[in-house]
């Protein structure tokens, strides 16, 4: 299917916070309580519409454990958006946010949009992190914030789509260099001819932008 833009996302956060379940809920609209332990990186994709434009989201769901960092780090580069996830029922996953954020900022491009997600909002009775704490953290670090439940699907669509909206806005404002694929944004095949900048520039990157994809 053709698209106007393709955005690459990465989902990060401690192990067991529900990263894979968020992805599955978003791409397949289902919840799988027993999900295989993610090894390395797994992948998903879905088309959304913003402003009447088709946008393809390519999502890399990373393993949370430190032993995979050497590989997952390499995925930061070239991501336009990141969902940084913690589990509202586990305080430690919230405490580690700073480290995740540092890691993300160090290895990604500076314009990457980061959405902070407090997942498992359906487990209110086991809550250990208040919503206000999440909001405060997000404010302090300039992130967008949302509480979600991969189980009930609450806010899952919104989390992915709001991130895309923010990226889209940055594109319109000219903040993102859309001709540089390392920014995690690709212009859809049908748009390339109308964009002379893409056709000419970019060397290896440019010549591959139009090729083959979807």
């Amino acid at each position: 299917m053709s698209y106007a833009y393709l955005f690459k996302y990465i989902i990060i956060g401690d192990t067991g916070v529900g990263k894979s379940c968020l992805l599955l809920q978003f791409t397949d609209k289902r919840f799988q309580p027993v999900h295989d332990l993610t090894i390395g990186v797994e992948f998903g994709a879905r088309m959304i519409t913003i402003d009447g434009k088709q946008i393809k989201l390519q999502i890399w769901d990373t393993a949370g454990q430190e032993s995979f960092r050497s590989i997952t780090r390499s995925y930061y580069r070239g991501a336009a958006g990141a969902l940084l996830v913690y589990d509202i029922t586990r305080r430690d996953t919230f405490n580690h946010l700073t480290t995740w954020l540092e890691d993300a900022r160090q290895h990604s491009n500076s314009n990457m949009v980061i959405m902070l997600i407090g997942n498992k909002s359906d487990l209110e009775s086991r809550r250990e992190v208040k919503k206000e704490e999440g909001e405060a953290f997000a404010r302090e670090h300039g992130l967008i914030f949302m509480e979600t439940s991969a189980k009930t699907a609450a806010n899952v669509e919104e989390a992915f789509i709001n991130t895309a909206k923010e990226i889209y806005e940055k594109i319109q404002e000219g903040v993102f260099d859309i001709n540089n694929e390392a920014n995690g944004i690709k212009i859809g095949p049908q748009h390339s001819p109308s964009n002379p900048a893409l056709g000419g520039g970019g060397g290896a990157g440019g010549s591959q932008a139009g090729g083959g994809c979807c």
């Binding site: 590989i71 995925y75 290895h107 694929e181 390392a182 591959q208």
Partner: peptide, 24 residues
């Protein structure tokens, strides 16, 4: 710096995002 090699080195740039870590 990521930003630097993003702009200066078109070969690396061309590989886009999935560059292994520097290490690898």
């Amino acid at each position: 710096s990521d930003k630097e090699d993003g702009n200066h080195n078109s070969m690396v740039d061309g590989r886009g995002s999935r560059m292994p870590s520097k290490d690898m």
